[in-house]
């Protein structure tokens, strides 16, 4: 291991506190849903949703980097896993969300409320 082992344990707990803090913020926002974030729109969904997504990606980064020891692996091995996942997932999600939106626009007006 490249670092001293003591600092590894400390770092693990640090990351834990950060992840917990992020989760608490997410849950608080999820319960209170401030109108200024929840009822406005930005790039296709509400700013509140964007905050959730960004915080979730931050948590995912923390877990992968620190807990799964990705930071200790060689650069291109990291990239062979992470870049593949990000590319394929982004592509699929983009296509499917555009499709879902189209389906709503087409089929939505046909529903009798």
């Amino acid at each position: 291991m490249a670092h001293a082992h003591e600092s590894h344990t400390k770092r693990i707990w640090n990351v834990f506190w950060i992840l917990s803090a992020i989760t608490i913020v997410e849950v608080a926002l999820g319960i209170f849903k401030p109108a200024v974030l929840h009822l406005t729109s930005f790039l296709g969904t509400s700013p509140l949703n964007w905050i959730f997504i960004i915080l979730t990606l931050a948590k995912a980064y923390g877990i992968t980097w620190a807990f799964m020891h990705m930071e200790d692996e060689k650069k291109w091995f990291r990239r062979s896993v992470v870049w593949t996942a990000i590319f394929l997932i982004s592509y699929l999600v983009t296509l499917l969300l555009i499709e879902g939106d189209y389906l709503h626009e087409t089929l939505g007006p046909l529903v009798k409320w």
Partner: peptide, 10 residues
Amino acid sequence: AAYGLTRFKF
């Protein structure tokens, strides 16, 4: 992603 599509649809 499938869940996302279905949610956007509805």
